[in-house]
Write a protein that binds this DNA or RNA. Structure first.
Lengths: 168, 168
DNA sequence: CTAAAAGTATACTAGTACTATAGACTTTAT
DNA sequence: ATAAAGTCTATAGTACTAGTATACTTTTAG
């Protein structure tokens, strides 16, 4: 029998750094859910509980997230019995970029290429910094998608996938 | 005089979540520095200290980062006096995507759209998940840039900017 | 052959951010 | 009046970031 007498240093695999936070994920999901009743012309007020249950999210955590979105002016709410949340604007007027920025901050992967909240990053010469040039491209690619995709686009895309798969 | 008698709850501004880590930033910068001597046909061995000084990075922190990149097979090193690091392959054969993944993990903003390390994200139906569809686009946009930009591309771009600005 | 230079390897830590949970409070419908 | 529903703020556990520390190994110069 061979004794294991040494613990090897496992090169740390740095998980997933550049990622959407749970807050961002849940917030975006919730907004998509809230966009659906509007598209269907049904009563648009939806309760936190309902969203939480449907998307398997902690209801208390979701409260905070929806509150942030409300304070950012993207949601309205109705208190009391029969209350809930509904979109402040039409789904076609709310982009994923707007939601993302409220919950996860700027989309730029590095501050020195941020349009919304620029800060120098401390490289020797910003003008000729190669990393900055590439990360600028990355920022623009992400922003192009998120700022040009509205909630309406998402629900439309969802239902087209459903149709294609013959679901519902 | 008006007394401030209430501390208001300031909506937390969620900094910058989807961002390049310092580890990733420093590693990419260092690799770009290491690509330059090769382009100039000079002695390609560069010491940690030199990179750290030039890019204003903690030399001890940079050690760890370069070691990771070495263990990932992207760098070679020479120990002892006159030693240092040099690229394991030509700058045109090393992409930013490869470096990024070693230091910051998968490029996908959400696990369920990762090509390199997929995991389900727990949404009710992955096939028709609108968020997943959009985040898939985002992943592809980022990967397209990082996987198609080599270190040689970066140094080329840098020198073309320098020329345009009339520097050096 | 010895000293200094340079990378290797691993441990440790302070601070911060993420992901919640908790509870008291306010508003509204019935 | 009561229950349903959102509001506001505090707090806690966990993980990760961005390092610092330290002992060790290899190589070259003299």
């Amino acid at each position: 029998m061979i004794a294991v007498n040494k613990v090897y240093w496992i090169t740390r695999s740095y998980k997933q750094n550049m990622r959407l936070s749970k807050r961002g994920e849940y917030g975006l999901r919730a907004m998509i859910v809230l966009a659906e009743p509007v598209e269907k012309n049904t009563m648009p007020v939806v309760q936190i509980k309902e969203i939480a249950q449907r998307e398997q999210i902690s209801s208390k955590f979701l409260e905070q997230i929806l509150l942030s979105l409300k304070n950012a002016g993207m949601l309205h709410s109705k208190m009391g019995v029969g209350g809930g949340y509904y979109l402040a604007r039409s789904p076609s007027e709310i982009t994923l970029g707007q939601i993302f920025r409220v919950l996860d901050g700027p989309v730029a992967p590095i501050k020195c290429v941020s349009q919304m909240s620029y800060e120098p990053c401390g490289c020797p010469d910003e003008q000729t910094c190669g990393l900055r040039l590439v990360m600028g491209d990355v920022r623009n690619a992400i922003a192009d998608i998120l700022d040009n995709t509205s909630l309406a686009d998402v629900t439309k895309r969802q239902s087209s996938v459903r149709k294609k798969l013959g679901i519902k």
